[in-house]
């Protein structure tokens, strides 16, 4: 028997597309001063968020956003069949400890900054496969925890290059359900790990852009569609220059998405916020999609958007050992 719900090489169609019945966001101080400030459920006024360390603050954001999403869905944690989550910290501690507190059966994921989409894709498969009624997906990131883990301590006097991006502090969660009202996830394209030899840990967008371009092109090839069939292609955190790269790479593959393409990282801050190339991190695509774009979809402005999360699969160890940065990218198609 062949896989009935699979089309092409990497794409699945859901027969009973799961519904996003609730979404919740929380964002840090800097994000709260950005263009999307009003679309977040909550903005914290201090990046410690009343905790002793940034790790604990990140965890608290993830826990609250998960609880908030469940509450918005009119459910309790006991109703949720699976929680799928991950983050950027070693051994995904934010997700693990949040799952401990929530007591929901848990599958931990690591897709770096693509985790929001990775969890959405797998959660949709679980629901469409008949394995779950409700799935909770979500992710978090934090400027302080990510910078010192992957780059330099924040107070170290290091001049950030113009192509550097700023890790978004925040968390987002969605409740996917077998039925209900809300936008539906109709298709997902699972990406391959792609490495075109970029190695600068301060420039992860160059490492991720080929993966994003590959996943978008693969989705279009697999489904036999054209860019014009969609209202929007949304990438997670390629930033200002990575966005240009992905448009250029897709052009080489014969797709022109320039007129209907946006990137969460390039939009989440105002230019005068001095982040250079924009935002990055797991929460970047999460808070912008769950905050701004799902609301826009509910308002009727968007019908069909292909959201692509992009992750840079590096570790400080791999960088120090001179490895290049492999990129991953997963896409889900959200339709109103």
């Amino acid at each position: 028997m062949t896989a009935q719900k699979k089309v092409g090489q990497q794409t699945v169609w859901f027969q009973n597309p799961p519904v996003i019945i609730a979404a919740a966001t929380i964002a840090g101080q800097k994000e709260g001063q950005g263009p999307f400030a009003k679309s977040f459920d909550k903005v914290i006024d201090n990046d410690y968020y009343g905790e002793q360390t940034w790790e604990k603050a990140e965890r608290r954001m993830l826990l609250e956003v998960m609880q908030n999403a469940v509450r918005k869905a009119g459910l309790t944690p006991g109703n949720i069949d699976y929680m799928l989550s991950g983050d950027l910290l070693n051994q995904i501690i934010s997700a693990n400890f949040t799952a401990r507190d929530l007591g929901i059966p848990f599958l931990g994921l690591y897709g770096a900054c693509s985790t929001m989409l990775e969890s959405s894709a797998i959660g949709s498969m679980l629901i469409d496969g008949g394995f779950a009624e409700y799935v909770l997906v979500g992710t978090s990131s934090h400027y302080g925890t990510a910078e010192r883990q992957f780059r330099f301590p924040t107070e170290q006097g290091v001049q950030r290059p113009l192509h550097a991006q700023w890790t978004v502090t925040g968390a987002s969660a969605m409740v996917l359900a077998r039925s209900g009202s809300g936008p539906r996830i109709t298709s997902a394209t699972i990406g391959k790990v792609i490495d075109l030899g970029q190695g600068d840990p301060l420039d992860m967008s160059s490492a991720m852009a080929p993966a994003a371009a590959d996943t978008i092109a693969r989705h279009l090839w697999d489904t036999g569609r054209q860019p014009g069939d969609y209202d929007l292609f949304l990438t997670g955190d390629l930033g200002i220059y990575g966005s240009k790269l992905v448009v250029s790479l897709l052009g080489q593959k014969g797709f022109n998405i320039d007129d209907r393409y946006q990137d969460c990282g390039a939009m989440i801050y105002f230019p005068e916020q001095d982040t250079h190339a924009g935002g990055s991190g797991c929460a970047c695509v999460g808070v912008v999609t769950c905050g701004h774009f799902l609301k826009e979809m509910a308002a009727g402005g968007l019908k069909r958007m292909f959201v692509v999360g992009t992750g840079a699969l590096l570790s400080p160890c791999s960088t120090q050992q001179g490895e290049t940065i492999p990129g991953i990218s997963h896409g889900v198609l959200i339709e109103s």
Partner: peptide, 8 residues
């Protein structure tokens, strides 16, 4: 800078 951030 690192000592301060790893105080935790």
């Amino acid at each position: 800078s690192p000592a301060m951030e790893y105080r935790g």
